[in-house]
């Protein structure tokens, strides 16, 4: 897996730029990852990102949009406003988690 440096953090990423080791993540890195894809993190964004981290720690899976909405309490529509076009992918990217299983 390639190693890259972002804002002084050395991180392992996959071919799409997703962190491959969720433990290399911290909140400072999240802000830098957000900036990479043009998103400035507000409280609302943090609410979603922290839910993703917490849910991943509990289940071992990146939650789907449906789950962020039903369990995390953030409506899907709002997620599309906060993380335009590809909210599932963008949230996971900023939260330093694997892409949610889109399934085959």
């Amino acid at each position: 897996m390639p190693v890259t440096t972002l804002n002084g953090h050395e991180i392992h990423v996959n071919e799409e730029g997703f962190l491959t080791d969720p433990t290399e993540w911290d909140e400072e890195l999240a802000a830098a990852l957000g900036a990479q894809i043009g998103i400035t993190l507000t409280d609302e964004h943090w609410n979603a990102i922290r839910f993703l981290r917490k849910d991943f720690a509990e289940t071992g899976e990146t939650p789907t949009l449906r789950r962020v909405s039903t369990v995390g309490g953030i409506p899907i529509k709002q997620l599309f406003v906060m993380f335009p076009q590809k909210p599932a992918k963008k949230m996971a990217y900023i939260a330093g988690l694997p892409k949610p299983v889109g399934c085959v």
Binding site: E16, G17, I37, G38, K89, A92, Y93
Partner: peptide, 13 residues
């Protein structure tokens, strides 16, 4: 790796 159609590595834009 032998499939030429593999997309380039790009961040989640």
């Amino acid at each position: 790796s032998a499939n030429p159609t593999r997309p380039n590595a790009t961040p989640a834009k």
